[in-house]
Design a protein around this nucleic acid. Structure first.
Lengths: 345, 345
DNA sequence: TATTAGCAGTCTATCGCCGAGAGTGCTAAA
DNA sequence: TTTAGCACTCTCGGCGATAGACTGCTAATA
């Protein structure tokens, strides 16, 4: 009910739909003729006036058509849009692309960024997997060159992290193997706190340096770092008329280079909100000023027990929400499925 | 000599310099007053007419000021610019940033992208290290989760590659260690061709699958892949007036997402040309159509014996070439230095 | 011969104006 | 409650005129 008649809801939905497609203010007559409504344009005008009073539509100037407000988009997404599935042939196409890829999480991640950008015509963001409670499973030390050594850390979740070390002296691979073995014996299954305890126990040991780095890497694994967020389709955004003024375009592009903001956004939306499923953030929602004229559709993938990441798309307010949500939902579910398959057994 | 008087060269240099700063056609009077020349504007006008005849300057329309042509920029870069060093305090600042970073090539790479973008005010591109003749030094197999195994390959050059495998059966870490040991014994120091020979020898062995992937990864290491090129400062570009038309801006942004083109560009400029040092590519140089109104300043880092990468900046034709070249040169030398230090023992 | 002052000529950019067109809100009738 | 009709408002595109910025040329000068 919430005070809107069925016809008013229809009008709102049609305005959103038409505006998304054509990016110009929508007039009452236009709706009547394009959608063969059984009402006169005057009737629709009355409904539009009501919707404007409720703050769901906006008139750029007296006697222009109507444009949805942020609240209008939100109402549309929450009440009117429903939840459509992605058409079967599209699903098939995407699945096919994934099955063709190598069996590698990193490849899937970059592929999903590309798929999302391609199907949504806006920019996409995909984070790698990360674990909330990171525990070390196993490490390896590999001699690369000179005193340089690669430390590879496998977490319980299956995530892999690596980090270069430069040691005081050159060690042979055999010596490194022995060292790694020692560390594995001492600390398999530990989290960063437990590791720190060990470090204080072994003060002065030649292992201390390596331990410190292991603990540091594990601590970092618990925070999502935008450093290795995948992006794609950023150029798509510039086709949208809302970014025709270079100033706005620049502001938006800077979003994608602002790591602090991305970190905050991703961790606060996807990882803290306990609700799973697809989130739609419209126009910054009073929290992210920079996102003021963008919308974000985002969902988790992976599983809470092991490791999770986020896939999403970022576009203008005037965005194909229904299609966007279906696409993001499908891709996130597909990713989860692929990952759990590759880890099973 | 090459047919230009000293004063004509000066005029060209000043036009380039002033145009770079102000992005508007430069008039004869403007040069005289701004740079306190001891000639009248009429004299400068005569020189400008000559420079235009030589194709070094261009007049947007009758009775507008002059703008450098691509040839003009090229002449400036090759003959007039000289090679300035980056101011000492800037050098110090950049060094400081690098010494603060972790001792990790990947961190240096992303840092150098950020430093270049910041100091040049245009976009930067940095590739990771890659080797022309990749030989396997050592591999490790690490059990991650279920049948999923991480294959880590260390090349002779010190580069590290990793790739997830999904095996038929779950193997314990001990079994994996044994397998890796076998492979190391059999094939340490081999290049991809030699590996392929081995593969045909061990047809049907359980090692075959792993071998195939090792050989594939090594082959890939020889090609520079834009997949993991670092970019930064792309948003900077949109501040430049040449990208105020969204159409051009989009075309340029697409450059950064066009992996095929980046691959080609990087391998043909930096890795094939035997001359080392800084390369300046102005306006695509008849080879890269998409780069038509961009310039690229790029240099190698690393060393030919071990592994090399490229650092560079990409901006509009109207670019601060002198400063750009100094910056790129300095960063590439610094990277080389840091890498060789971390590899020495 | 090289340089310069002066001037006529050319082109752009900007402003204001006007009319066409689109779309509304309102009123009165169905 | 819906609708036809109409007056009103506001934008957008085109037009013309003006101001201003530079140039190229010519004739004078050192």
């Amino acid at each position: 009910m919430d005070g809107l008649t069925e016809r008013q809801k229809l009008v709102l939905a049609l305005v959103v739909r038409d505006y998304v497609d054509f990016a110009e203010p929508i007039s009452s007559r236009r709706l009547v003729t394009n959608y063969h409504l059984d009402f006169s344009s005057a009737t629709i005008r009355n409904d539009m006036a009501v919707l404007e009073q409720r703050g769901l539509l906006h008139q750029p100037y007296t006697s222009a058509g109507r444009v949805p407000t942020k609240a209008g988009y939100r109402y549309f997404v929450q009440q009117l849009m429903g939840s459509n599935e992605l058409p079967a042939h599209i699903q098939e196409m995407i699945r096919h692309q994934f099955y063709q890829a190598r069996n590698d999480v990193d490849d899937w991640i970059s592929l999903s960024a590309s798929v999302l950008a391609q199907h949504s015509k806006v920019a996409s963001i995909v984070t790698p997997l990360h674990t909330e409670k990171a525990r070390m499973k196993h490490i390896a030390l590999l001699s690369t060159r000179g005193r340089q050594v690669m430390l590879v850390i496998i977490l319980n979740s299956g995530e892999v992290h690596q980090q270069t070390l430069v040691l005081e002296d050159t060690l042979s691979q055999d010596q490194l193997n022995a060292t790694a073995e020692q560390i594995n014996q001492l600390s398999a299954g530990m989290d960063s706190k437990e590791l720190e305890k060990i470090i204080s126990d072994i003060q002065g040991s030649p292992l201390e340096e390596v331990f410190a780095v292991v603990s540091q890497v594990i601590k970092q694994a618990e925070v999502i770092s935008s450093g290795d967020v995948y992006r794609d389709g950023v150029a798509n955004m510039l086709s949208e008329p809302e970014f025709s003024e270079p100033e706005k375009a620049k502001k938006t592009l800077e979003l994608f280079e602002d790591r602090v903001m991305l970190d905050d956004l991703l961790s606060r939306t996807v990882f803290e909100r306990n609700a799973s499923g697809v989130h739609v953030i419209i126009g910054g929602e009073d929290t992210w000023e920079q996102l003021d004229d963008c919308s974000l559709i985002i969902a988790r993938y992976g599983s809470r027990e092991h490791a999770m990441g986020a896939v999403g798309i970022l576009g203008p307010l005037r965005m194909a929400y229904s299609r966007g949500v279906s696409t993001v939902r499908f891709v996130s579910e597909l990713m989860s499925e692929l990952i759990s398959e590759s880890m099973s057994n």
